[in-house]
């Protein structure tokens, strides 16, 4: 049976529960070229990153893990870029997937307790990506026991249900998604449906913090 549960994003951040503050490295900014104008959208205001406290032993469990995708032949780059640990902001340091709704999926190798996910779609221009949905599951086909931990797909363009989160502008800061309460899953799947500058989908890096 297909079950999609939305984690309660209104819960307070993971503060006071654990001993360790999660440090996620932010690449240096490197905006290049002429930006495509961002027309008025209902955008999330820029805010400091949430403080996330996690248990000892939480690391980026996605590092070096295999990546699959709805697009078997990326237009540019390789799917391995998504988890290769290289998040330097430079042209060409991303995998580019075809237009329309596309996803990438990371196999963590085993079920993990997941506390946070960080995603960088594109870094050398400020971009708004559409239909961003992040789901967790132990089912590699994402048919059973699927948990959505983020969804800003205001018009259900990624076909994973309409989301309530606001769209956001990202560059070197990327986007940090707090998984609260923590979820158990082996697979992480991230959807998008183009961006404000073109209809393609890009990923520089995805980090999954768990143990």
């Amino acid at each position: 049976m297909k079950r999609i549960a939305m984690v309660l994003m209104l819960l307070p951040p993971l503060v006071g529960l654990y001993s360790k503050t999660l440090e996620i490295e932010v690449p240096k900014a490197n905006i290049i070229g002429t930006p495509a104008p961002i027309k008025s959208m209902n955008l999330e205001p820029k805010a400091p990153r949430p403080k996330i406290e996690v248990p000892d032993g939480v690391t980026n469990v996605a590092l070096g893990k295999p990546v699959t995708s709805s697009d078997d032949f990326p237009l540019f780059g390789e799917l391995s870029f998504v988890t290769d640990g290289d998040k330097v902001a430079m042209e060409g340091n991303n995998v580019e997937l075809y237009s329309g709704p596309q996803w990438v999926q990371i196999d963590l190798g085993k079920e993990c307790d997941i506390y946070a996910i960080a995603v960088w779609h594109f870094m050398t221009q400020e971009r708004v990506y559409f239909g961003v949905v992040v789901e967790l599951s132990n089912d590699p086909d994402f048919r059973e026991n699927v948990v959505a931990v983020y969804n800003n797909d205001i018009d259900n363009s990624s076909k994973r249900g309409k989301g309530e989160s606001l769209q956001y502008v990202e560059a070197n800061e990327g986007k940090v998604i707090v998984v609260n309460p923590p979820q158990k899953a082996r697979y992480v799947r991230l959807y998008s449906n183009g961006n404000h500058a073109n209809d393609k989908n890009h990923y520089v890096e995805v980090e999954v913090y768990g143990k």
Partner: peptide
């Protein structure tokens, strides 16, 4: 335009 770093290239490319 803002300062931009030299362009580099992906690993193994």
């Amino acid at each position: 335009r803002a300062v931009a770093k030299d362009l580099t290239w992906p690993k193994n490319q």
